[in-house]
Write a protein that binds this DNA or RNA. Structure first.
Lengths: 211, 211
DNA sequence: TCTGAAATTGCAATGGATGAAAAAAAGCAT
DNA sequence: ATGCTTTTTTTCATCCATTGCAATTTCAGA
């Protein structure tokens, strides 16, 4: 006697609990600080038992990165969509456009609070470390995808160098400007410019002429 | 009744305890695994109280990275030694040579066990994350040093892009080959090549001609 | 309504990390 | 050598994230 069409009462309730926990956690992290917020408090705020928190998120850190997977997949699909003959430089430029976007709308569900989240991450060393780890895993995936998209045209080290340089430059440029207190727009612009500088340098990738 | 020349009994004992803890920890991590080894066990192995461990190392993780500071300083001093007129590319190449070296001898004290340590780090996600975080902080320092060395010749974003691309490429290339099971020599070679690819691309840094 | 699967909860235990005060060791001056 | 001061180490107590387990509740379907 229930609607089977999209989900099911059980599923919906689960989704709602997950979102509630997520919102509660981020809100608390933002006002009290990450380290100062306990899992017990988050659970209380979401009105579930502390034990339940861990059946939704493997760790306190995970709440903060609950949606990174989606962003990563977006970039991977861009690489997979390489047109025959498209250069690595051009492809990476497209990846940059796809990822370096401030807009929301991804999961209208919970988070338009990207800036708050950045603040939370930057304020807790363990979160920064986690973020970098995720970014690194992401780079591995990108490297694999790039090799796939250019199979035969690019070797292992070239692909890794291209991705590493590309992401590394964008990331460091972004945080450098962020540290200086730049606005979100400036940060994105810096990442874009850094990515461009690298991409230009990588133009000749695949050729064999050294200056 | 004691030698006051260089240290002092107190200092010597402290150094010895620190080294003992370090060796005990790394030995245990290597044979039992990082997660499986408890601080209590490390302390017992070194014959001190568990609480004492934390007066030598801020965390269990820190033991593994006790000497990274030294390596970082080596690179920073290379950048600081830039000859007037030396190009960023040339300077970064020198940095690569200074850092990408397998030799030991740095602190003859404890660690020639670089390979074991790599294994330990790669086997524990939390250590990988920590390593990346340290590497990132290192990049910030390098960026600052580079801006200093090229004051007036290079802006913030260019410096960050150069360092980010350089380190990012070397790191990802190295781990890519490492994942494939490459030998230490192959890994270093890959990092070198990736660094070279980037440095070449960065040749024109500071000029304004786009292709 | 009855029943089995899934989700939630309570409870206990492990292990990292920190604060505070007592105890032991080292340095120093007489 | 002896007593006083400073530094380390050790105890002891506590907080908190995380996990395993068993009891309980809720949902879905017959």
């Amino acid at each position: 006697m229930a609607e089977q069409q999209p989900p099911g009462l059980r599923e919906r309730k689960k989704l709602r609990t997950r979102r509630t926990l997520c919102e509660a956690a981020l809100r608390l992290f933002h006002v009290k600080g990450y380290e100062e917020t306990t899992v017990a408090e988050i659970a209380a705020e979401a009105d579930v038992s502390p034990r339940t928190f861990f059946s939704y998120f493997a760790s306190k850190e995970d709440v903060v990165f609950h949606d990174t997977r989606a962003r990563a997949d977006r970039a991977l699909s861009v690489i997979a969509s390489r047109e025959p003959g498209e250069s690595a430089a051009a492809l990476l430029a497209r990846v940059a456009d796809a990822v370096l976007t401030l807009e929301g709308g991804e999961d209208d569900l919970v988070l338009r609070m990207t800036p708050e989240r950045s603040g939370i991450i930057m304020s807790a060393p363990s979160l920064q470390a986690r973020a970098l780890h995720l970014l690194f895993e992401f780079q591995r995936e990108l490297t694999g995808a790039l090799r796939e998209a250019f199979r035969g045209e690019m070797d292992e080290v070239e692909a890794a160098a291209a991705i590493g340089a590309f992401i590394g430059a964008a990331k460091l440029a972004a945080t450098t400007v962020m540290d200086r207190g730049g606005s979100p727009e400036e940060i994105v612009a810096a990442a874009h410019r850094a990515a461009e500088l690298v991409v230009q340098g990588l133009q000749r990738l695949g050729h064999q002429d050294s200056p």
